[in-house]
Each structure stands twice: as C-alpha cells, then as structure tokens.
C-alpha cells in the first residue's frame, strides 16, 4: 500500500523523537565521559585539551579503592541475603493463603515508597540507641531493606509463571516435597533468582542516600567516597571514576549475559 504524506510525517517524527529520547538518556554519561578527559583541573565542558591523568589519580586515591572494595562486599552480601529472604517471602506469598497476606505484601513493598534517607536515618537512630558499632553489616542491613522489594517482585513473577505440572510430575515419581524444591522448582526458577540477585547487587552498588547516614570512614562505599571527594576537590577525577563505575557495571551485565543469557534473566525474552 502506498504511504500517504501523513504516514511519512509520522514515520519521520517517530524516528526523531526516538533518537532524541535515546540521546537524552545517554547524554549525562556522554558529557561526563568527555569531561573526564579534560587536561585541566576543573570540571568543565567541553575540555580544553585531552589527558588520562585523572584516571591515574582515581586509581591512586585510596578512598576510592577502599570504597570500591566496601561497595563490592556490601553489594555481594546484601544481594545474597536479600535474595534468600526475598525468595522465601515470594514463595510464601505465591503458595500460601493466610489472613495477613496483603499486609505482608504491603510491608515487603513499602521500601519502594519510603525514601532511602528515611531508611538510613531510621537505622542510624536505632543503631545509636542500641549502641551498635557502625560496621559494614549495618550498611548491609540498610541495603537489604532497600533492595528486598525488587527481589520479592522478580522471584514472585517467576513463581507465578512457573508450570506447577513439573512439581506434580516429580511428586508422582516419588519425590518428597523437599526434593521437589531442590531438584525441580529451584533449578527451573534460576533465571528469576539470578535476575533478582543481579538487580539487588546493582541497586546496592549504586545506593548513596541511605548509605550516607550509616557509613563511617572505614565502611564508606564508593558513592559516598565520591561524594566526599567532590566536596573537597573539583577536578575531573570524579568524572573518571564515573566512567570506570559504568564500565564495571556494564562488564558485569555482559558477563551475566554470556553466562545465563540476559534476555532470559531479565524476563524480556
């Protein structure tokens, strides 16, 4: 069928709008990436001349290295704990009917509407009142609360889509409920679990607001270290760190993609 003029106009408008949106989404990163290459010691755009010296500075600055290690540890432990707890809650929500099910669901989802600084502040007051030391585990606890809704949602969706016939088949073949869970349900839910865990880890790795309340000099995460840096210095080191940051997350996602096929993990297949 021959396209009318209107179709052409809509076609081209559509393309322009899409390109604009994609460009807009990527714009901040592009600006920061270019700014990170600036030779001079000010964050400006566009750069006067190019250099990689701020990357060298980023790697040499001890707070960043320590912050990165802290962030990785916190993300790993936080995601793991949130995954185990979240998967358990999701299983309970999917499989059992009980009086306060709606309430439990609401409580589990509440971190989505409670601001992160409130969660950080709450745990700070609590830990102070209970005279708890401000260790890494306090940060992990904050992160678990923040990422739990995402894990619960992700696993819950996988459970909803799960074909119960597999479990019946296994049962009829003599598998006890525990065996069914270990040999059938868990392996088949693996994409959902990996997806939930991955989101949890990335969210925790990026978390800043709540962390700011509960870290100290020893336990500060990379985002907090970056914040503290920018309060003192205004050179492009921070832009360099941002680029490294994005590259680390992207490489992680690519690795997961290679290992487990990301489309499946993200449920967009």
């Amino acid at each position: 069928m021959k396209k009318s003029l209107l179709d052409h106009v809509l076609d081209w408008t559509g393309r322009i709008v899409l390109t604009a949106i994609v460009g807009f989404v990527l714009l901040p990163f592009v600006v920061v990436a270019i700014a990170s290459l600036n030779e001079s010691a000010i964050l400006s755009f566009p750069p006067d001349s190019l250099s990689l010296r701020w990357y060298a500075n980023a790697f040499e600055y001890r707070d960043f290295a320590e912050g990165l290690v802290n962030s990785l540890k916190i993300a790993a432990f936080g995601a793991l704990i949130a995954l185990v707890a979240g998967a358990g809650f999701a299983y309970v929500l999917d499989r059992y009917d009980f009086a306060l099910k709606g309430l439990l669901n609401g409580v589990l989802m509440s971190p989505l509407i409670i601001p992160n600084f409130t969660i950080g502040l709450g745990l700070l007051i609590l830990s102070a009142a209970a005279s708890l030391p401000r260790t890494m585990w306090l940060v992990v606890a904050v992160h678990v609360i923040i990422v739990l809704p995402f894990v619960v949602r992700s696993v819950y969706v996988s459970l909803k889509n799960f074909e119960r016939g597999y479990e019946n088949a296994a049962e009829s073949l003599g598998a006890t409920p525990g065996r069914v869970l270990l040999t059938i349900t868990l392996p088949l839910l693996m994409p959902g679990l990996i997806s939930g865990g991955l989101f949890a880890a990335i969210l925790s790795f990026n978390e800043f607001t709540a962390s700011l309340f509960v870290v100290n000099q020893r336990t500060q995460t990379l985002p907090v270290a970056m914040y503290n840096y920018v309060r003192e210095y205004a050179d492009p080191t921070l832009a360099a760190v941002s680029v490294i940051y994005v590259v680390v997350v992207a490489v992680t996602l690519l690795a997961v993609h290679k290992l487990f096929r990301l489309e499946k993990v993200l449920n967009v297949e």
Partner: peptide, 16 residues
C-alpha cells in the same frame, strides 16, 4: 502423591 506409587502422563507431558 509421592508415596502412592502411581505413574502419571500429563496433558502437556511436564517433562523436566
């Protein structure tokens, strides 16, 4: 079911 010693062929087979 796991103690009944029955064999079941499901409509969609439910192969693992």
């Amino acid at each position: 079911p796991h103690q009944r010693e029955i064999g079941v062929v499901f409509q969609n087979y439910a192969l693992f």
